[in-house]
Computed example of a mutant assay.
Amino acid sequence: MRLVVVGSQNPAKVRPVQEIFAQLKPEAVVVGRDVPSGVPDQPLGEPQTQLGAVNRAWAAVEIAETEQRADAWGVGLEGGVRIDGPGQGWLFGIVAVAHAGQLETVRTAEMRLPPPVLARIQAGEELGSVMDDLLGTKDVKRGVGSVGMLTGGLADRADVWRMGLALALAPFLNRQLFEEC
């Protein structure tokens, strides 16, 4: 049996990992566990966001190894905001996968945030809470996410995480091509 631990219990993060591993390794059991990210609730910038994803992946694989021992995987998903200047901010994510001592990370697609949303993030608020307040939703980050709300459902948070995870898994699926000579 393969055990995949996602470093979060948020269904919007766990579900896409379940969907990808159901295609890749149907016998895998995918579970979410709360682990510390080591970064603020709303990471700002790529280094901080990457650190959160990596911390989550390593903590998750440690749990998987403790519970399973063999074929343990850890996945860390961290959403962040990159600020380029006044009124210019971008939502993106980092996916980190840890397995057998190897770590792979990728950066997801990004989208521009509306200036009123960005202003509140710069004032110290977390994106999900800002979106809930502005749109009258509850726990949007546990569902379609800001991506789903801002795109009118054309894409959602799970779509972004699925694509990022698929890309992060490429070196595990093609080890011979990624090995250094």
Rank of each mutant, 00 (worst) to 15 (best):
A123T: 01
V160S: 08
A123F: 00
E125I: 07
I94M: 12
G143L: 07
G148M: 10
L150F: 10
L135Q: 11
W161H: 15
L91I: 00
E104D: 02
V140T: 08
A98D: 03
L113R: 06
A96I: 10
S129E: 13
A109C: 05
G143Q: 15
R157F: 09
L127A: 08
G145C: 06
V147D: 08
A100M: 10
P114I: 08
T105H: 03
L154F: 10
G128C: 03
Q122D: 00
G152C: 11
V130P: 02
P116E: 09
R107C: 05
S129M: 04
L118R: 05
I121D: 02
A96V: 11
A119Y: 01
A123E: 10
R157M: 05
D159Q: 12
R142D: 11
V97C: 03
M111E: 06
G143D: 11
S146I: 08
A109T: 04
M111H: 03
R112F: 03
D133F: 06
R157I: 05
G124T: 04
R120G: 05
A155M: 15
V97Y: 02
L134C: 03
R107Y: 00
F92E: 04
L113A: 05
R142A: 14
V95L: 10
L118H: 07
P115S: 06
V95W: 06
S146F: 09
R107A: 07
G148F: 11
K141V: 09
R142Y: 06
L91F: 13
R107K: 10
M131A: 02
F92Q: 02
Q102K: 09
V160R: 06
L91Y: 12
G145D: 08
L113S: 01
G93E: 01
D139H: 13
V97P: 03
G153I: 14
V147P: 05
P116A: 07
P115V: 05
V106I: 02
L118M: 09
D159V: 14
V95E: 00
L135G: 01
T137D: 06
F92T: 01
G145Q: 05
V160D: 03
L118S: 05
G128A: 08
G148A: 13
Q102L: 04
G153S: 14
V160G: 03
R142L: 11
V95F: 07
D132F: 12
A100H: 14
M111K: 03
S129F: 01
A96F: 12
V97M: 07
K138P: 01
D132V: 11
L135T: 13
E104L: 01
D133S: 09
W90V: 00
V160Y: 11
T151M: 13
D139K: 14
V140W: 01
G136Y: 14
G153Q: 14
R120T: 00
L127T: 07
W161M: 15
W90K: 06
K138L: 11
E126R: 02
D159G: 14
G101T: 12
L103H: 01
V106C: 07
V140S: 06
L135I: 09
P114F: 06
W90Q: 07
G152N: 12
D139G: 10
D159N: 15
G93A: 11
L103P: 00
G136L: 13
T108F: 04
G101C: 13
R162K: 15
A100F: 07
G145M: 09
D159P: 11
R157Q: 12
L118F: 09
A155H: 15
L135H: 08
V95H: 06
W161C: 15
L91S: 11
L150M: 09
P114A: 04
Q122I: 02
P114T: 04
M111I: 09
